[in-house]
């Protein structure tokens, strides 16, 4: 098991180094930050001045090496746009995104897994059809649209929930629902198909033949096995929520890192973009490792398979 963990960690580090290289090169290629910094109507001298002031006149490999060395020390540089340390800028916004993603994920899992299990117990029955309907509607509805519908009902009409901002727990209710609806269908459908497959397998039939009760078979034996792909998928989905809640954060005006990323991209604030991509990637890679380890824990056969590959 230790060997397996070390291998996964080594691969994760390689992935992170590649990501840092890609991020750095791509952001440099996208726009000349000196032009953006100097602003509209700036003269050539203004632009050169901005280039020197922010160290953008050095060769790219030198800039990368300096940046990577700083990052290893936990220093992501200073935001071009805000003049503050990037870590401070991100630290002020990360909690909003983390809380939002966690709430959305918990809500999605709490609804999706029971719904998937219930659907799998009677495939083709009305509960299955209902769950299919929810999945189709959830997948088809754009997040901003659902957000606006919720705002209309709960914010404007009923005045029950605040519309924008992230200052109280109530502010997280509508955005969490939108995120949950976004990830719920895929978790539910995977739970359902996994459960149908497991419930039809020989060992479950054998367990039932031994006289074990329906619920016990479903929840103790079948669910555990059906959860293996669901856990992996949920980790990936959580990664998506952390990096991809740009639209929800924008619609509900929540100062999280998704919204920060979008703003930074539109103003070519390279240090912030680089830091966000790196941090979100690190979280993503970390979740991937955790999901592999969880899978290995839930299904011991995987340990050998991956560990010796």
């Amino acid at each position: 098991m230790l060997d397996y963990i070390l291998r996964r960690a080594f691969v994760a580090v390689l992935v992170m180094i590649s990501i840092s290289l890609f991020t750095f090169s791509l952001t440099q290629m996208a726009a000349d930050p000196a032009v953006v910094l100097a602003g509209e109507g700036a003269s050539t001298e203004d632009i050169e001045q901005a280039r020197q002031a922010f160290g953008l006149d050095r060769p790219l490999p030198v800039q990368y090496a300096a940046w990577a060395a700083d990052v290893l020390r936990g220093d992501f540089g200073t935001s071009f746009r805000m003049g503050q340390p990037v870590m401070d800028v991100i630290a002020a916004r990360l909690p909003t995104t983390l809380i939002l993603a966690a709430c959305g994920m918990v809500l999605a899992v709490l609804v999706a897994i029971p719904l998937g299990v219930v659907a799998a117990m009677r495939p083709g029955g009305w509960t299955d059809k209902l769950s299919l309907l929810i999945a189709v509607v959830g997948q088809a509805m754009p997040s901003f649209w659902l957000g606006l519908i919720l705002i209309r009902i709960f914010g404007v009409k009923l005045r029950l929930l605040p519309i924008s901002g992230a200052t109280t727990a109530l502010h997280f209710v509508m955005p969490s629902i939108v995120l949950a609806v976004f990830v719920l269908p895929v978790i539910m459908r995977l739970t359902r198909s996994g459960m149908i497959e497991v419930l039809g397998s020989d060992y479950i039939r054998a367990a039932r033949a031994r006289g074990l009760g329906g619920n016990r078979v479903v929840f103790k034996h079948a669910l555990r096995n059906a959860m293996v792909p669901v856990v992996a998928l949920s980790a990936v989905q959580l990664g998506m929520l952390l990096g991809g809640s740009v639209i929800v954060e924008t619609v509900f005006a929540m100062p999280g890192i998704g919204y920060l990323a979008w703003e930074s991209i539109s103003r070519a604030d390279l240090p912030v973009i680089q830091a966000i991509v790196l941090i979100v990637s690190a979280i993503y890679v970390g979740l991937g490792v955790v999901s592999d380890l969880l899978n290995a824990f839930l299904n011991p056969r995987l340990r050998g398979a991956i560990g010796t590959s």
Binding site: L148, R152, G155, V156, I163, S164, V251, F252, A253, Y259
Partner: peptide, 18 residues
């Protein structure tokens, strides 16, 4: 001054009196 990037959300806040 409230930072609300989305035009539709701003409109909702105006209609909602916020």
């Amino acid at each position: 001054f409230k930072f609300i990037p989305d035009a539709a959300t701003q409109m909702a806040e105006l209609l909602g009196g916020q």
